[in-house]
Design a protein around this nucleic acid. Structure first.
Lengths: 197, 197
DNA sequence: TGGAACATACCGACCAGTATGTATGTCCCG
DNA sequence: CGGGACATACATACTGGTCGGTATGTTCCA
């Protein structure tokens, strides 16, 4: 039934917002219910626990967001290093100050939940791995085209690029400063440049 | 009175552990009381709220830990870049798998609390700034000695180094993998090498 | 020097509020 | 008319925080 799906989707989106704002543990089901106008019975009809709701937010909302905002844009044509720099700088231009303050939704959940809930950790790890592999593929393509140094290990470099990106977002989040994000991202761009032949 | 100080210190240390394990919001005062054998009245005699207890943990426990484990070691004599690589690799050797899983105490608090509590954000920012400046000073010294490229901006590079370091710790925390930490840190070492003349 | 006045450190029962989760009832569509 | 899709009311546990009270000094004046 379409109505049921709409209810479920509304819950997922409100849960995503609430979790993004407060973290998973501090996220309140009652707040989610208020914001959606859905009742508690309906929520527990669709999700058997708060934990399962959190899992679904990762598997459906955040995963889809990652695809749309990072994995797909990175697949555009062009020199791999240039493409990555473009994507990073475009994201830097589009980001709002609210998004800076709240950081990366995936990394937020990773830092909070991975030590205390294997189900979260596993799901987050899966997304990180996809992310890393998409960067790795880009570097590998660059090596074949002769744009990227043959001496580097694409998997290791991709891992470091991803870590640095999350690190920059984390630092800027605490500083609540777009300027600091851009200065930090510039360091990452410098590293990317150093991978060119 | 010495006993009062001992009580206060015991509370701070137990609070640090509890917060490190569960985050600040999910940290339970009752657990802290159980672990220390201190009563609730005593706790609220020393700290007027859970928030103030959290502030004190940053100002006293975490700040001291940062000094001891990063700021002081970085001040040893030697070529700046070599010193930093040494400190990073030594830390990588000494880290336990439990510490990997739980991540960096300062970064954990930063990601959780900075968007929702200005007092936390400010205190964490203060420590990050000290950290960054100690790296910046090292790079500046390296430039004067002719070991570090004159073309780089020491403040910006220090910011990126700090962000990358936290990023590597964060990624390894989610992966729960020492190997992934070392591979990631190797990327940081590569960046540091690229700063040499 | 002895004792009243006061301060510090601590105790632990209790409070209101909130959290997730459950049990049962109703509605409505195929 | 059976079952999916809810709604309502409630259970239970736990949270941070408060409050009246106590025990152990410390100070200071007669």
């Amino acid at each position: 039934m379409a109505d049921a799906d709409k209810t479920r989707q509304a819950l997922l989106e409100a849960a995503y917002e609430e979790i993004y704002r407060n973290g998973f543990q501090a996220a309140s089901l009652n707040t989610i219910l208020e914001r959606t106008g859905v009742t508690k019975g309906a929520l527990y009809h669709h999700f058997s626990s708060k934990q399962k709701l959190g899992y679904a937010v990762i598997d459906e909302i955040i995963s889809e967001k990652l695809d749309r905002e990072w994995l797909t844009p990175i697949q555009q044509s062009g020199h791999p290093i240039d493409v990555m720099i473009d994507v990073i700088q475009l994201a830097g231009q589009q980001i709002t100050s609210q998004q800076i303050d709240q950081g990366c939704p995936l990394n937020n959940l990773a830092q909070e939940m991975s030590p205390i809930d294997p189900g979260f950790r596993q799901r987050i790890d899966h997304l990180y791995r996809k992310w890393q592999q998409s960067i790795e593929k880009l570097l590998r393509d660059g090596q074949q085209d002769g744009e990227v140094k043959a001496s580097i290990n694409p998997a290791d470099a991709a891992l470091f690029i991803l870590a640095s990106l999350e690190g920059c977002l984390g630092i800027a989040k605490n500083a609540q400063s777009i300027d600091e994000l851009k200065r930090c991202a510039q360091g990452l761009v410098g590293y990317l440049d150093s991978l060119r032949c």
